[in-house]
């Protein structure tokens, strides 16, 4: 068994774990368990990112998904309620119908996706590989992801930073950043 086969086995393991966690999140009504399983889901997704050779993404997903999202969801849960009402039969069937319709649509399109891991797929032959070829001479730093993020697509990243800034301002406006709650009212 070589390295690639072992990685593939790990991938199957991650798939099974993610599916089980997803189903458990649907079934559970206790929000604390749901929030914790969401953190686990993100952490396993981060492990899968490593095996899909996306190391930068994995670091961010591990810190965001297992750290910050979980803390925020826990805080929101404590500020609201700890238990969800059980799903009604009508909602269950409605969701199942929507899910089946959407699922049929995406699975119909599955055949148009490139073969998994193909180097000659349209997604992997265009601009992405051109960045790899040009980075050594133009930017001259080893990590191509950083080069594309900060330099080639700098304008895109600037927009993202402004979106993050806007979200921070929005939360601060909704929930009073100075953090004293509704002090003015009581």
């Amino acid at each position: 068994m070589n390295g690639a086969e072992i990685t593939q086995l790990f991938d199957y393991l991650f798939m099974v774990m993610l599916l089980f966690i997803g189903l458990a999140i649907i079934r559970l009504q206790n929000l604390f368990a749901v929030v914790m399983l969401t953190g686990v889901y993100s952490l396993i997704a981060a492990a899968w990112f490593v095996s899909l050779s996306a190391a930068d993404v994995a670091i961010t997903e591990a810190a965001v998904g297992a750290g910050i999202s979980t803390v925020l969801l826990l805080a929101a849960m404590l500020l609201t309620s700890g238990k969800a009402k059980p799903t009604t039969a009508f909602r269950h069937w409605a969701a199942l119908v929507v899910m089946t319709a959407a699922g049929a649509a995406v699975f119909y399109a599955l055949g148009d996706l490139p073969v998994y891991g193909a180097a000659d797929s349209p997604a992997n032959t265009g601009v992405g590989m051109a960045y790899i070829d040009r980075t050594p001479a133009e930017i001259n730093i080893p990590n191509v992801v950083t080069a594309v993020l900060a330099s080639y697509r700098g304008f895109d990243t600037m927009g993202e930073v402004f979106v993050v800034f806007a979200a921070g301002v929005g939360v601060a406006l909704l929930l009073n950043l100075s953090g004293r709650g509704k002090r003015g009212e009581d």
Partner: peptide, 12 residues
């Protein structure tokens, strides 16, 4: 800032 906003809120 987001964490302070959530954590400083009291349940009302």
């Amino acid at each position: 800032a987001i964490f302070y906003a959530f954590a400083g809120r009291e349940r009302t």
